[in-house]
Amino acid sequence: MTMRYLFDPPEIAAVPVIGEGSLFPVRRIFCVGRNYAAHAAEMGFEVDREAPFYFTKSAQALQATGTTIPYPPGTEDFHHEMELVLAIGAPAFRVERAAAMNAIYGYCCGLDMTRRDLQIASRQKQRPWDLGKDVEGSAVMAPITRSDDFGVIGEQCIHLEVNGTPRQDARLSELIWKVDEIVSHLSGFYHLRPGDLIMSGTPAGVGPVNPGDRITGGIDGLSDIALTIGDPD
């Protein structure tokens, strides 16, 4: 007997790869919290250098650059967060830092869109951040650049503008936990697999956006990212 689904399963979320005719299928989205000292400070926290910490987004939160998403329900404080995203292309489990870079297929620009008021309310009650972070359309990705074409992570500028006005401007060298440390540490808790994405954290300058706003951003050496905020659902 052939079993059928009760309803059509969701389409596989995927990100284009520059120079490839194939898409990068997305399995999971991990996010690193407070990975720039200035951002931790603006959120009212000291830098935690003991270990990185994480939250997750659903693969169905993936949204392509250049599109419009509605202003989400349940919030009055919807924030932008510009990030470097790591695309995992090889299995990694309990890998040392020296081998961690071998698991990275490439990099892209990403936006972690956040219902900040809901995140803060959950945090104050010591509850998970899901309502604030795992928002439909909140994981916006530009096309992936293969790691060999990007080179060594260092002084590349990471920036974001809203309606042309600069909001975020930093260097990737300011990451507290470097990409090899992130992959090595996270692989101690998960079997990382091809298709996993890791959003590495946002620099200072996060802030609210409103319907009609246009977000643009970029990282030196990667494809730029853009997003328009539409009317509420």
Rank of each mutant, 00 (worst) to 15 (best):
Q119H: 08
R94W: 13
G195M: 12
T114Q: 08
T202W: 12
E76F: 14
M3K: 14
P128F: 07
M141N: 12
E83V: 00
G207Q: 06
G33L: 08
A40Q: 11
K178R: 12
E81D: 11
F93Y: 14
L197C: 03
I104V: 14
A13L: 05
D134W: 03
M113Y: 04
R28N: 14
D8T: 11
P232L: 01
P10W: 08
G19N: 07
S22Q: 15
A13P: 11
V140W: 05
V183A: 02
T216G: 13
D220H: 14
I198N: 06
T68N: 03
N102E: 12
D48Q: 10
A38H: 14
V15C: 02
G44F: 02
F45W: 09
D77T: 11
D77L: 14
V135T: 04
I215R: 00
R115N: 05
D148Q: 15
R49T: 12
T202Q: 03
P208Y: 04
E96T: 08
R28M: 13
Q119V: 04
I120V: 04
F53C: 06
A92K: 09
A51G: 06
C31A: 09
N35A: 02
I12L: 05
F78D: 00
E161A: 08
I198G: 03
D117I: 05
L197D: 03
P9A: 01
T67L: 09
F24M: 02
H159Y: 06
A90K: 09
T2W: 04
R28Y: 13
D117H: 15
D231V: 05
L175Q: 08
I215E: 01
V15M: 03
L175N: 08
S147V: 13
G137S: 03
G230F: 11
E96F: 04
A59E: 08
M82C: 11
Q124L: 10
L62A: 08
T165V: 15
V206F: 02
A87T: 07
A90H: 15
I229E: 01
A226V: 09
Y190E: 12
P203L: 00
C157E: 10
